[in-house]
């Protein structure tokens, strides 16, 4: 019990961010027309690609003789980048089709 209380106490700011972000995420998404569900899912998919930041940190802090970290970190960087870049490009391609064509 004490461990849990002190854990929450020590990380109180994180818990504030956690709670507020949950509500924010719900607020931001409600009342979205169903035509945008797919692009929105795809866009959100790209945003969780922010894990690339973690992969970069793992990679950057790995010792040059720590092959496990180097190899796994390298793969993680590639996968994270795939998620981010692929996600944003695919979303953009989907949304490109929604733009209004000039009337001729």
């Amino acid at each position: 019990m004490e461990t849990i209380v002190s854990f929450i106490g020590e990380n109180i700011k994180v818990f504030y961010i956690l709670i507020l972000s949950i509500f924010l995420g719900i607020e931001v998404i409600s009342k979205v027309p169903s035509i945008l569900h797919t692009p929105l899912m795809s866009g959100a998919n790209a945003i969780h690609g922010v894990v690339i930041v973690g992969a970069v940190i793992v990679m950057g802090l790995a010792d040059s003789n720590d092959y496990l970290s180097l190899v796994l970190g390298f793969i993680a960087v590639i996968l994270g980048t795939l998620n981010v870049v692929g996600g944003f490009v695919v979303t953009d391609r989907m949304l490109e089709m929604f733009k209004k064509k000039p009337k001729s």
């Binding site: 961010i17 956690l18 949950i22 995420g25 998404i29 569900h37 959100a44 998919n45 945003i47 922010v50």
Partner: peptide, 18 residues
């Protein structure tokens, strides 16, 4: 890391609603 935290949770909660 705040960027990972907010980004992740935003997607987590908005993804659930979606």
């Amino acid at each position: 890391n705040q960027a990972m935290l907010t980004g992740g949770i935003l997607v987590g909660s908005s993804g659930t609603i979606l």
